[in-house]
Design a protein around this nucleic acid. Structure first.
Lengths: 155, 155
DNA sequence: GGGGGGCTACTCGGATAGCCCCTGTCCGAGTTGTATCGG
DNA sequence: CCGATACAACTCGGACAGGGGCTATCCGAGTAGCCCCCC
C-alpha cells in the first residue's frame, strides 16, 4: 500500500499554480523543486487528462489550474494520479468457499469488504473536504510571504 | 495505491480462526477459499511475526489466533501485512525549493503533508475501531449459520 | 500385555524465480515570438 | 515606415527502457502420532 511519488509533486505544483495566473512551464516547476522534468511532466499530463489543469502549448505556454482552487479537492488530485479504484481489492473469495455462489459479487455483502470500504470512505471524505484553497490558507498562516515568493519565482 | 492481495485473505482467515479453537493448517484454509497454499502460508507467517497469530508446528498443527478476537483490530492485520508506514510519502521536496532548508524534515510543518496524514489518520481510526469480533458479529447477523459451517469445515 | 524406540506423515519456515507497475528518459508535433525581407 | 513571411526556440504529448516489490513456488527443519519390536 504505497502511494505514487507523483502525488506529492502534483499537490505542491497545484498549490503553486493556484497562486500564479499565467501558465507555468513544467520544466520551471521541476527546477523549483529539483525534480526530474520529464517525469513531472508525466504527472502533470495526468492532471490535464483529469480536467484539473489546462495545458497551453507553444512558447510562453505551460500549465495552469482549470478551475478555482476552492473547487479542487485533494481527493481530485489523488484520484487523477492513482485512479478511482480503492486500495482494498475484494476479489470475492467467498464465492469459492463452501456454500458460496460462484460468480456472485460479494463486495456488497461481505462484512470484511464493507468494513474496509467504510474506512476508505472516511479517508476520501477527509480528502474531499479539503480544497487547494484551504491548504493554501494554512500555508499562508504558517509563512505569510509564501505566495509572494512563489509569484516572484514563476513570473 | 494498491493494497496487497494477502490482506483480504488474511482477514478472512483470521475471522475463521476466531471461530475455531483448534489450530487450523494453512493448507486447509487455502483449500477452503481455493487459494495458492504456499502463498497464503507466507501471509500467515507475517501475521505470526506481528503477534496476531500463533503457529503450532508438527502434525495436527496449524495457525490460531494469539489473543482474543475482540482485541485484534482490522488495522492490526493491515499493518502486519502492509507495514506501518503510511501510503503518502512526504519526501520534503520543500527542502530543495528556494527558501527551504536542505536536510530539514518538512513532514511536520508542510501543510500538504499534514492534510494527507490527517486523512490517513481517519482511515486508521476507522480500522482500529473495528475488531475481528465486531466483524464476526456482523457476519452472523447476515447469515447466522456461518459460524457452525466454519467450525464444521475446520474440525 | 506394557513400554520404548524408530518411522512416517504432516506442518511451518525461509530461500528462490517470475511478472507487473512505478520510475525515469527520450524524441517528435504543435505553437508562439521574432527577425528579416519586400513593398 | 509597415506588413507579411520564414525561421527558430520553446512547450506539451506520447512512446520507449530499467528497477523494485508483489505474486507464486519449492524444498528443508522440526514435531506429533503411530506402528513395530522388545521385555
Amino acid at each position: 500500500m504505497r502511494m505514487g511519488q507523483g502525488v506529492e509533486w502534483a499537490l505542491h505544483c497545484c498549490l503553486n499554480l493556484a497562486w500564479v495566473d499565467a501558465p507555468v512551464p513544467g520544466q520551471r516547476l521541476a527546477a523549483y523543486y529539483d525534480l526530474p522534468p520529464a517525469y513531472l511532466n508525466k504527472q502533470l499530463q495526468a492532471l490535464v487528462r483529469a480536467g484539473i489543469c489546462e495545458s497551453v502549448p507553444g512558447a510562453r505556454g505551460g500549465f495552469r489550474l482549470a478551475g478555482a482552487a476552492a473547487e479542487i479537492s485533494l481527493l481530485d488530485v489523488v484520484v487523477a494520479l492513482e485512479g478511482r479504484e480503492g486500495a482494498f481489492r475484494c476479489t470475492s473469495i467467498l464465492s469459492a468457499s463452501p456454500g458460496g455462489d460462484p460468480g456472485r459479487d460479494y463486495s456488497g455483502s461481505c462484512a470484511i469488504s464493507v468494513s474496509m470500504r467504510r474506512a476508505e470512505l472516511a479517508w476520501r471524505r477527509e480528502l474531499a473536504g479539503r480544497s487547494l484553497a484551504d491548504v493554501g490558507t494554512d500555508v499562508l498562516r504558517y509563512s505569510p510571504d509564501a505566495m509572494d515568493r512563489v509569484r516572484a519565482a514563476f513570473t
